[in-house]
Amino acid sequence: MSGRTRTGDASFPLIELRDVERVYGKAETEVKALAGVNLVIEEGEFVAVMGASGSGKSTCMNILGCLDVPTGGEYRFRGVDVRTLSRDQLALLRRHYLGFVFQGFNLLARTSALENVELPLVYRGISARERRARAMGALDRVGLLGREKHTPAELSGGQQQRVAIARAIVSDPKLVLADEPTGNLDSVKSVEIMELLTRLNRGHGITIVMVTHEPEMAAFASRRVHFRDGRVERDERSATSDSGAFQTLSVEQPIGTA
């Protein structure tokens, strides 16, 4: 079993959305959640996606995460048009390159935090011992050490969210997609999570795309993309952005693929 899909050339941008549309429903009940999104994200960037509720942020994230397919337009991941990939190839792409933090956590019920975090590693064929060690490490990074035996029902909303983050980062993905990762956290915890994401971004060159409503959280990002009615309304980069440096650093140094 080949562990790799065609991932394209690293000289291409990591993410390239061209006139991406996503239409839900049919005829009268039709909802155009995305109405032509154009967006290029380079490797190593830390992007905050902002916008009003219903503006299509989650829809866009699902498409970026290859959980959903656009009804129109083109999505290239490292130059590869994802429409040309089979379901299995998309699964392998998610397995090896992506980490997803869902808006609604989506943890497995009655399953301990540790086992939830281990799950992505199971499908990478990593031994039980190494899985445990890495999952504990990820739980440590989100500050949940000591809670690894608890099931989602025994954890607070914020703790569940941190388990979800640990699960997304445990496999050292190239790209972490986080849909409101601080939506259920108080400002102290939120800042901790932001610092964690910033560390992952700067220290490991992991590209991060994060949806948030809070400008304070968006300030951690090097770039802010504003959605409105299914389109990108505004795209602003921090003056202090230094992501370019990491971009070059990370190009030929895949993380978590050793």
Partner: peptide, 16 residues
Amino acid sequence: TREIGVRLAIGARERE
């Protein structure tokens, strides 16, 4: 079905 969705989302293939 949700469980299957989670597994697929984190990279499980249909056959797995």
